[in-house]
């Protein structure tokens, strides 16, 4: 598993949608010029070791080992039903919330075994953004941002300042600053999703898990969220599940390809998309199935 060259942030991104669309028009396997970053072993923030996941008796994740380098974005791609969502939900132990579900194997956060810690504690260090935006409907925008802190009994010194900071981080501040008391549901889908991301950021996690965060959003909102991911990656380790390969190519430095509960290949994104080592990976990339 090569961890040598980490691909640089995907170019200097402009804000215009035209740029995004034209970039999308390029082949996902186009090579780009990248300056070299730090060589060899980048720090591993989170690591899954022979992780297995079960729903009842059915084994859905069949022994996956995967490192997640710090301050990088790792994308997980694969056809529907390959276990991407299940896998990512194991990383913050949301998987076991479903009745009858369990997991086995090892997942380390820095050097802590997540199965040895209290899930509540774990989820403060590892945040999650869901596929369908789920701001709490009975809370205001401000309330939503601070919800995680309130739940955990943390009283910030400057709640308004913190709300502003996170809303600025997700580029939502200008749009909502005059109506922080409005309900979270009064925003558009894309805005709601960014609100949910802000809510996660307010907890100051170390890792952010994203389960197909853009699949319920329109292309413009998607572009915004992808820019956000690009910004966030400087401070956080991000794992993103996506069924959109172009998205993986745009936002992630590393990509893992899952198939039927197994890890088929994991490498730098540009390698996966230009010279995949496995035939199945190539088949998927080129659209022969999935």
């Amino acid at each position: 598993m090569m961890m040598g060259y980490s691909s640089a942030p995907i170019g200097a991104r402009e804000n215009s949608e035209k740029d995004v669309i034209s970039r999308e028009a390029q082949s996902p396997t186009a090579t780009r010029e990248r300056p070299q970053e730090e060589p060899a072993t980048a720090n591993v923030k989170m690591r899954a070791g022979d992780l297995r996941a079960f729903f009842g008796k059915a084994e859905v994740i069949k022994g996956i080992s995967l490192p997640f380098p710090e301050n990088k974005v790792t994308a997980i791609i694969g056809p529907s039903g390959c276990g991407k969502s299940t896998f990512i939900r194991c990383l913050n132990r949301m998987h076991e919330v479903v009745p009858g579900a369990r997991a086995a194997g090892e997942v380390l956060l820095d050097s802590d075994d997540i199965y040895a810690m209290d899930p509540v504690r774990l989820r403060r260090r590892v945040g999650m953004v869901f596929q369908k935006p789920n701001p709490f409907p009975t809370m205001s925008i401000r309330g939503n941002v601070l919800a995680g802190l309130k739940l955990n009994g943390i009283r910030p010194d400057d709640p308004d300042g913190l709300a502003e900071k996170t809303l600025r981080q997700v580029a939502l501040w200008d749009e909502v600053k005059d109506g922080l008391g409005r309900s979270g549901m009064s925003l558009s889908g894309g805005q709601q999703q960014r609100l949910c991301i802000a809510r996660t950021l307010a907890m100051e996690p170390e890792v952010i898990l994203m389960d197909e965060p853009c699949s319920a959003l329109d292309p413009i909102a998607t572009a915004r969220v992808e820019e956000l991911i690009h910004e966030l990656q400087k401070q956080y380790t991000i794992v993103i599940v996506t069924h959109n390969m172009q998205q993986a190519a745009r936002v992630a430095q590393y990509t893992a390809f899952f198939y039927m509960g197994e890890l088929v290949e994991h490498d730098e994104t540009n390698v996966i998309f230009t010279r995949p080592a496995q035939a199945r990976t190539e088949d998927y990339i080129t659209g022969r199935f999935g």
Binding site: N92, M94, V97, V120, R121, R123, R124, G127, M128, F130, K132, N134, P135, F136, P137, T138, M139, A147, G148, K150, L151, N152, C196, R199, T200, M203
Partner: peptide, 24 residues
């Protein structure tokens, strides 16, 4: 999804019910 949202923020089981389910 509301319950899960609360859990993902680090709520205990009861807190997730209290903030994610019951208000709705």
């Amino acid at each position: 999804s509301y319950r899960e949202g609360a859990l993902a923020l680090g709520a205990t089981h009861w807190e997730a019910i209290r903030t994610g389910v019951m208000p709705v």
